[in-house]
């Protein structure tokens, strides 16, 4: 079986898996990193949203062979370390606004929100309602109003 290597949450790791296995299963089943949730495996529900080189992506739809050795994959487990804290400001906002109901979609929601805020900042502006409309992460509990409040608050705490 081929060996694949990439950077996961700050550590260079190697894993043996068939080329066409989607990264989500490599993370969850082979590496035991279960923060990215399995929802649809069709790139629709977005519950597995993680970061690749700082940008949001869905590991359910990426074959492990397409990940380069220099690629840096960050899951919700590695998010706080990207800011050198115990919790990322977006996670703090999540707690403050008591966002989660069942909680299943939350890792994906938070990862997508952080990427969306960074994307807006890179364009030199603050996050807008139009940006939030672009987040397609599904929450079956329907906590969208709290999610939007928390993303806006988290964006402020993330600084420039």
């Amino acid at each position: 079986m081929p060996t694949h290597t990439f950077k996961l949450n700050g550590k260079q790791i190697s894993v043996e898996a068939e080329d066409n296995v989607r990264l989500l299963w490599v993370l969850r089943d082979l590496l035991g990193v279960t923060g990215p949730k399995y929802g649809c495996a069709l790139e629709v529900c977005k519950s597995c949203t993680s970061h690749i080189n700082g940008k949001a992506f869905n590991p359910c739809s990426v074959q492990v062979k397409d990940i380069e050795p220099a690629d840096e994959v960050t899951t919700i487990e590695g998010l706080p370390a990207t800011v050198g804290k115990d919790l990322h400001p977006m996670q703090e906002a999540w707690l403050k606004y008591d966002v989660a109901q069942c909680g299943y979609c939350q890792p994906g929601q938070i990862m997508a929100a952080v990427a969306k805020v960074k994307q807006a900042r890179a364009e030199g502006r603050d996050i807008t309602d139009a940006d939030l409309d672009e987040l397609r992460n599904i929450c079956r509990c329907g906590t969208y109003s709290r999610i939007r409040e928390a993303v806006k608050a988290g964006a402020e705490d993330m600084g420039a």
Binding site: A41, L42, K55, F57, C60, S61, D66
Partner: peptide, 14 residues
């Protein structure tokens, strides 16, 4: 039970 997972995830990063 389901179609195969897509493989174009890296084309949709943000």
């Amino acid at each position: 039970s389901t179609p195969q997972s897509p493989t174009d995830g890296l084309d949709h990063t943000f």
